[in-house]
């Protein structure tokens, strides 16, 4: 069990250090406006990649049809400027209904 404790601690400390990168540098290093702009764009790019891989893949393979179709419905609702709640419930509801009728 000591190995598990060490694993949790290593993961916790490492993750916290990643998270501290921004706040630790903030105020000490004056980032050029261009870098700041790229960081903001980079965060959106990361979120978009998470969204794409999260919608389409599972453990390195295709996630099946129900999930991406659900996300697609959510995306369509978001495009039509539907409220946040409608977007999220629309996506989850579509995936749930598709699975209930046998679509993986």
């Amino acid at each position: 069990m000591n190995a598990t404790v060490a694993m949790i601690l290593a993961l916790a400390v490492g993750t916290y250090l990643f998270r501290l990168a921004g706040p630790a540098l903030h105020g000490r290093v004056e980032l050029p406006a261009r870098v700041q702009e790229l960081l903001s764009a980079g965060a959106i790019v990361l979120l978009a990649a998470l969204l794409a891989t999260g919608a389409l893949t599972e453990s390195g393979g295709f996630a099946g049809w129900a999930r991406p179709l659900g996300v697609l419905v959510g995306g369509g609702l978001a495009w039509r400027r539907a409220p946040f709640v409608v977007v999220v419930l629309g996506a989850a509801g579509t995936a749930a209904v598709l699975r209930a009728v046998g679509v993986a």
Binding site: A48, E58, G74, G75, V88, A91, R99
Partner: peptide, 16 residues
Amino acid sequence: ATYGLDAAFPAVLVAL
């Protein structure tokens, strides 16, 4: 997955 929760998280990101 029965409740479609796996589709909810990508949808949250889409909306945001």
